[in-house]
């Protein structure tokens, strides 16, 4: 009997460790908030690209800042991915947003690599890509708010 209670307690604790939402609307609201937060990280990257184009960045700062924006995007993505989608529709929503988050992380990662190579002026080349990702995240947020 004791081991049954121990297993039950273990299951409860295990379940408690997986962030979950009660229903699909709550999950959708969290997805919209995640898109908004990721949009902020992408906008930071976009501003850094603008500043690089205007020769207003210092090398070490550009490198540290792009790494910071990338870390922020990665943290937002991993937090969202850890939330258990409550139903099939939420799973589709998760896949849709995950693609956007992945593209954001990937673009910011490439920026960080470019900055670490000392090619600060080349960061300007990421503007168009980041703007497009930002627009998509913004659209996602509006669609699901």
């Amino acid at each position: 009997m004791r081991w049954v209670a121990a297993v039950a307690l273990g299951c409860l604790v295990g379940a408690a460790c997986v962030p979950t939402t009660r229903d699909a609307p709550t999950y959708e609201a969290k997805a919209a908030t995640t898109a908004e937060k990721a949009g902020s990280a992408v906008a930071s990257g976009e501003l850094l690209a603008d500043l690089a184009a205007a020769h207003r960045l210092l090398g070490p700062f550009a490198s540290a800042s792009t790494a910071g924006a990338e870390a922020e995007a990665d943290a937002i993505r991993s937090t969202f991915d850890a939330i258990q989608p409550p139903d099939h529709r939420s799973e589709q929503l998760r896949e849709e947003l995950d693609k956007l988050l992945e593209s954001a992380s990937s673009a910011l990662s490439e920026m960080r690599i470019t900055a670490r190579r000392g090619q600060v002026a080349d960061l300007a080349g990421f503007r168009k890509q980041l703007r497009s990702i930002g627009d998509n995240l913004d659209q996602f947020q509006q669609d699901h708010s």
């Binding site: 906008a43 960045l57 910071g68 922020e72």
Partner: peptide, 18 residues
Amino acid sequence: PRNITVNQLFQSALPSSF
């Protein structure tokens, strides 16, 4: 105006750079 929410130190330096 760019919808950047600050939560890291580097973002505080961006207006001066700009």
